[in-house]
Design a protein around this nucleic acid. Sequence first.
DNA 1: ACAACTTGGGTAAACGATTACCCAATTGAT
DNA 2: ATCAATTGGGTAATCGTTTACCCAAGTTGT
Lengths: 345, 345
Amino acid sequence: MTSNSETGRRARSQGPSIATVARQAGVSTATVSRIVNGVTNKASADTIARVQKAVSDLGYRPSSAGQTLRRSESRLVALVAANLANPAMSAIAASVEVALREKGLVMVLCDSHDRPDLQDEYLLEMRAQAVQGFILLGAVDSPALKEMVEAGQSIVFVNRASPLGNGSAFVGIDNAQAGADVAEFLFGKGVQEPLVIHGSLASSATAIRVEAFQSRFMELRGRRAAVAGSDSLDHLEIGRQEVAAYIEANGRPPEGVFCLSDLIAYGAARALREAGYVPEQDCVLIGFDDNPMNDWIAPWLTSVRVPYRQFGPVIVETMLNLGSGHRAPVVELPHELVDRSDWRG
Amino acid sequence: MTSNSETGRRARSQGPSIATVARQAGVSTATVSRIVNGVTNKASADTIARVQKAVSDLGYRPSSAGQTLRRSESRLVALVAANLANPAMSAIAASVEVALREKGLVMVLCDSHDRPDLQDEYLLEMRAQAVQGFILLGAVDSPALKEMVEAGQSIVFVNRASPLGNGSAFVGIDNAQAGADVAEFLFGKGVQEPLVIHGSLASSATAIRVEAFQSRFMELRGRRAAVAGSDSLDHLEIGRQEVAAYIEANGRPPEGVFCLSDLIAYGAARALREAGYVPEQDCVLIGFDDNPMNDWIAPWLTSVRVPYRQFGPVIVETMLNLGSGHRAPVVELPHELVDRSDWRG
DNA sequence: ACAACTTGGGTAAACGATTACCCAATTGAT
DNA sequence: ATCAATTGGGTAATCGTTTACCCAAGTTGT
C-alpha cells in the first residue's frame, strides 16, 4: 500500500498526473481526459462525479508539456517588445497580460532591445515553445521574422507595422492623422519654425507620424520643419541632447517641438530647464503616447494620447481571430491630442 | 519521394523535429540528441559534422514540449508581480528578463494585482507549465503559495518577504536601515511633525520601513509621526488624497512627508500644487524606489534609491543556486538616499 | 590467437495528454 | 426472440526528446 500510494506520483514538486487521477477514481486515463475536457457523453453521471472528486481532491491540472506535445500548441503567447524601458511598451504589456489571462493564455515577455539578432533568437525560441502566437511591439526586419510570416504563424504587429510590408495583422492608431493633428496644433499656437525630434525611423509608426506632420505643416506654413533625432533607445537623452544642441546653435530654445515620444519630451524639458528656461512657458512641447502618469508628473505636457488600456483586449482578439478571416485585420484605435498648454504651476 | 520529403515534417508552422534531422543525417534520433546536447564521445567526428550540418540546414531547435515532458522541467520561469502599473515592478521585470535570457531561460510575466485568488491561479498554472522557478514581486498569503513552498519549489521573494515567514530566499534591501535613513534625513531637515503615507501594509517591506522610520524618529524627536495610507494599488491617488485631506484638516501642508513609493510622492506633489503650494518649497517630500526617470520628471524629489538594475542578475543567480545551498539565501542590496532637496527649478 | 576493452551508434522505454477505434452490455424496435 | 442501436468506457498509438542498455567491430594486451 505504501509503495502503491507513491507509484505514479511525479516528484512532489510536479503535481499529480492524469494517471494518478485515473487510479484514484478507478477509471482509465482516457475517461479522465474526456471528463476534464468536458466530453460528457462517454461517461455515466456516477463516473463523472467520481472523477471530478478525484480531480479536485488531488488538485489535478493537466501538464502543459503533455498537452502541448499532443496538440502541438501550447497556451503560451509571446510578446516581443522593442524596449521595455519605455513606459508605453510596459503599459501595453500589462494590458495584454490581463487580456490573455482572461482567455486562459499565458504571456511570455521578451525584450528585443530593437536588435534583429535578439529578435530572431526570441522568435526561434518561441516557436520551439509552440506558442499560439506572437505579438510584436516594434518589430525589426530579420530573417526569422520573414520565416514565421511565411509559415503562417499568428502574428500581430502593434504600433509599428510589419517591416515586410503588406498583409499582416496590425493594431495601432491612425499615425498619419496623429501627425497632422500635431502640425495643426503647433501651427495654431503660432509656432512658425518647430523642431521635430524622433527616435528610430526604422519604426514605421514614427516615420509616418513625422511625414504626415511635415506634409500638413507644409500645407499650413509653406515650409517643412527641422528634424533631429537618432536611433538610440534612450529617448530621454535624445530629447535632452537635441534640444541642448539647438539652444547651443541658435542661442534660444525652439518655439515648439514635436517629440515623437513622451520620453523625448521629458528629455527636451530637462534640457530647457538646464539652460535656464521654463518648459511650459518658453517652448510649446508636444509629446506622444501620453503616459498615464502625465497628469501627475508632467501636467504641463500636451501629448497625443494613445489608448493603451484598450490595446490588450483588441490585440488578443485580433490574434485569436487570425485563423478565421482571410484578410489581415488592421485595427486603428482612436487617439486624442490632450492639450495641457494652459497649465500653470 | 515527394511524399517522403513531407513525412515526419510537422505542420510547417512548427519547425523540424529531431526525427527529420536524424533522417537527413542518416543516423538515429539518439545520436542527434546526444550531439545536440554536447555528448561527443558517442559519435565519430564525421558523424558529428554531418549531424551539425543537418541541424543548421534545417534550423532545428528541440521542441520545448518534448524536452519538458522528458526532463519534467521547462525553460520557463514565472515572474509574478503584484502590480505592473508600478514602474518599480516593471523595472525589475525588465531586468529579470535580461538576466534570464542570458541563462537561456524564458520569462513568463503575471500580474496578480495583489489578489490571493489570482496569485493562486497563476501559481497553479505555472506549476502545470513545469516552470523552473518562481520570482514573486510582492507575494500575498494564499493556499497555493503554502503548497509550493512546502513542495520545495524554487521560489525567490523580492522586496516583500514570504508571508509564511522564515526560510525562504529573499532579495531586497535593508528595509529597516532605509526607514531609519529617512527618519534621520527628515529630522535633519528640521521636520518636527512629518506625515507617513503608505500603500498596503500587508507588504512586509512597507511595514518594516514604516516601523523603522517611527522607531528612529522616536529616538531623535521623542515622538512618532502621523501615519496615513490605504491598501489601494493606486498609489498616485493615495498620495494625493492623504495630502489633500491633511491640508483640509490642518489648513497647511505637512512639513515633510515620507511617501512609501515614488508614486505616492507624485500624488502628494499633485495635491500640494492643487492647493496652491509648490512641492519643492513648501514641503519636504521623500519618495521611495527612486524611479530612474526621477532625474527627468521629478528632479526635485528626494528618494531612496533601490538598485533595480542589479536585481535581475541577483534574483536569477539566487534562484538557480537554490538547489545547492542548504540555507535560504537572503540578499540585501545597497540602497541610497538620493538627496535632491537643493533643486530649484 | 584469444580475452578484454574501447569506439560508435542503434533500440526502446518513459514522460503526460488526447483520441481514434474497439468492444461489451444494455436498450429499443419489430 | 432477434437484430440494431446506443451507452459507457477501455486500449493503444501518437506527439518529441532523452537515456539506459545493448551490440558489433575494431583495438590492445598477453
